[in-house]
Write a protein that binds this DNA or RNA. Structure first.
Lengths: 210, 210
DNA sequence: CCACCCGATATTGGCGCCAATCTCGCGCGG
DNA sequence: CCGCGCGAGATTGGCGCCAATATCGGGTGG
């Protein structure tokens, strides 16, 4: 009722990212219309938007379903993330302010604490928070928007990866290296640390094949 | 009449890229509906799609207009292109087939001929064709789709850049270096040649400020 | 017994109307 | 003469209905 236009897209996107709607699940316009209390036209518009974001697939006269991203596609997405996040990290290292430095350092500390406590879920959230803050600090709006879309497509694989035993111990030092390089205001180190981190992610995804 | 669903988006996109619709031009749903012979709902859906692609801006209750991308945004887009096209070039060098090699070599030859003849327009088309083929050969669908969207946003700046006197002489050897590296099957050389080329593009865009 | 065809059902796509909202211009008052 | 408020026009947003199409099931014939 109090929905502003476009909020249906947000609601459905959140539901997909949250996992309420699983891969390949059909999204019937009438059902969503009732669940969200929105008109069918609004739902349709939202589905068009989400199709453009790569979160749902729409087949003419056959309806929409949430897109199931394959492992190969997850690797592709991670390759693009490597290229774009390293760019953002380098830019962030150049323009980071004092306040942002303390913020990043705090995230690093909380990551250490989460790993020490074995808090996988908390670490996963911090992981997302760190990457998001780096994107925002970089000021590269184009890259930021694209990366946010790719992240939404990849959350499921990302989450499965975080659940793998021993993953935290590998991931933590990589993230700390990124934080340290940005704190030092060293663009090339930040870029290389980010590249190394995402190479690790890609290798871990590849290892899933075997 | 014989429009398949989604073709309205293609028609409007083509019109924007072609320049029939200029930056900041208002896109009134009723007018487009009549021009294209499509229903207003179809036009609306197309505008939502194009808004997702960053080609038009939609403000609630205030209509849609074609997005005017600023010079700063054009530089951002080119930075992202640098990151993604270098990735595609490296991958293309790894998987290029014999048939694709001859095709790329032919494009290189035609570029040389166009520069020799002073054919700026023909060179601009070959430029687009070369970049597109490299993206396609790479097999990186995610990067390819993103790059195609970015290209559509940037055609105006790209075209203005191509018109600058002396630009061809600078651009040609950079493109030939990319072709040569891919023909040689050398991923790191292809990546570096592409980076160098797009650094040149970015520098040329920056020079527009002065 | 199996394969094919055909009809019932569910779902999307399209169209017209009406309400909500914004923009622009006119008139009023200071 | 200028600023402000208000109303008319234009445009988008939403809703209900109907047609077009795909899917699934049963029935029939070989």
């Amino acid at each position: 009722m109090n929905d502003s236009p476009g909020s249906v897209a947000d609601a459905v996107r959140a539901a997909i990212v949250r996992g309420d709607f699983g891969p390949n699940q059909r999204l019937v316009e009438a059902d969503l219309s009732e669940q969200l209390g929105a008109s069918r036209a609004a739902v349709r518009s939202a589905l068009v938007t989400l199709a453009g974001e790569g979160l749902v697939e729409r087949i003419p006269h056959r309806g929409a379903k949430v897109r199931a991203v394959s492992l190969a596609e997850a690797i592709e997405i991670s390759e693009v993330r490597l290229a774009l996040e390293s760019l953002c990290a380098a830019k962030a290292a150049e323009v980071v302010t004092a306040g942002q430095r303390t913020e990043l350092a705090a995230i690093g500390d909380r990551m250490r604490a989460a790993v020490a406590a074995g808090d996988v879920l908390g670490y996963s959230n911090l992981n997302e928070e760190l990457h998001r803050r780096v994107r925002e600090i970089s000021g590269q709006r184009t890259a930021r928007d694209l990366l946010e879309r790719l992240r939404a497509q990849n959350v499921r694989h990302q989450f499965k990866l975080a659940m793998r035993p021993g993953r935290l111990a590998v991931s933590l030092p990589e993230h700390l290296a990124i934080v340290e390089a940005i704190l030092a205001g060293d663009p090339v180190a930040a870029e290389e640390a980010t590249r190394a981190h995402l190479r690790g992610v890609i290798d871990a995804l590849r290892a899933t094949v075997s």
